[in-house]
Design a protein around this nucleic acid. Sequence first.
RNA 1: GCUGCUAUAGUGUAGUCCGGCCAAUCAUGCGGGCCUUUCACGCCCGCGACUGGGGUUCGAAUCCCCAUAGCAGCACCA
Length: 486
Amino acid sequence: MYEALFEKHEHRKVLPDLEGAKNGVVMRFAPNPSGPLHIGHARAAVLNDAYVKQYGGRYILRIEDTDPKRVDPEAYEMVKEDIAWLGLGITETVTQSDRLPLYYDLCRQLIERGGAYVCTCNNEHFKELKQVKTACPCRDQPVEKNIRRWEQMLDHTFKEGEVTVRIKTDLTHPDPAMRDFPAFRILDTPSHPKVKAHVYPLMNFSVVADDHLLGVTHVIRGKDHIANTRRQRYIYDHFGWKVPVYRHYGRMGIEGVVLSTSQMRLGINKGMYTGWDDIRLGTLRALARRGISPDAVRKAVLAIGIGDTDISFSWDNLYAENKKIVDPVANRYFFVPEPVTAQIDGAKPHTAQAMLHPSDASRGTRTLVFERTVLLPGRELTPDVTMVRLKDLFNVKITWNGSIPAFSYAGESLADARAAKAHIIQWLPAQDSVDCTLLTQQGVIAGACEPRVINELGNVVQFERIGFVKIDSVDNGRVTAYFTHK
RNA sequence: GCUGCUAUAGUGUAGUCCGGCCAAUCAUGCGGGCCUUUCACGCCCGCGACUGGGGUUCGAAUCCCCAUAGCAGCACCA
């Protein structure tokens, strides 16, 4: 009784149930190896992964490389790296270019069953016939002739563009997209980087063949595949195979970035981007480089779920997830952007102890030794600022002579600084700092940071009052960091 | 043009199947406050939505119809 009441208002954090999944599932992630994975891929990859983990079962990585025009040989490796980064529970991997004989065999079977025919009609002509729901002459030719033509495809008697295997569907189907769609083609060029072939299955055929052969029970993919799902049903029906359960989620746009692999590649080639991990791109490796945790990506994507509404992915939501992960672990350091040198009059040498993490004293402190001269953030020293507190050090009075500031010691009292509403700002000892370049999506910020940051190579840290950053590289004592988020 | 899918706050999401408990959930964002030697974290308060119009009904975010908008497909891509 009470449970029922609670249930009502307790919003569920889990994905909706999948039909027929009680006894486990077999699912797949099926990227095309044309480049590294991006956020869009992560949605499919993580959603399927989450269901496999929820119900138990197998999770197949299937590399769909049946179009040599869209294969980047380097992508095979990149995809695997990206999947490892995401932490998917892949249980087995298949590559479609290894499986061409399987598809050929099934195609022959389908022709024998009368479910497909080998069409030599001109493509434009076929299109016209399709629009007016009319069969082309090849459609009704005897099975023997189709088999002969199929063999001629395989032995390369036919050349590229001369012939195509079509699935018999329903020519009167109201949706022209359903009518006798193609299943195999010949491609003479380019050659496939992994296999010698000239007859290639089209996606709708190889997908059905593999989903069936691999025992896939549930498919979650974008709604751009809705039409394909319907087309694929014809193939299942011809073979008498059991159809998996499908879910199609809506289209996802991402503010501010291009997700098209071909466009990213173009930009890289033009020199607009530094590479696939350019921090302005939406690839997983770009996110990784910026200090986004795979778990944050996973949570953000799961929060979106499998709704079929078109959505726009917001960075804010991803950053919020990432911050929850990163804030408790990131050590704090001072980074002074666009530093100006300030000599503090009247101050004796001090040694500042700043906490590595404000809510975890056990991590200890960093030591910053003040002698006489410090580096301060230039942009914050405007003539209306007459007092600041150097964090963990002391107060500083600023006297302006026109636009020239003079700095003098103004006591240790934190209460004074509070009373004066002075900002508590980060600083660095002039004699003990390292150059640090901070790269943001908006541009480059030159500055300096604590020498100890060098030891954080590869980690996400927080530059106090700036935001979280990933320490990307250290070169000759110079630090390069990437801005993650506030 | 043809076919189909969708429509809840700035963003994401719950609720829609089985109409009343929804003057609509949660997160994020934004505004304000508290805490704090960071403009981080944490805590508190607030802002903000059922695309429009008809209909059915005692009662509609939920069912029906129309409109509008967005998206997808109609490839020898996936």
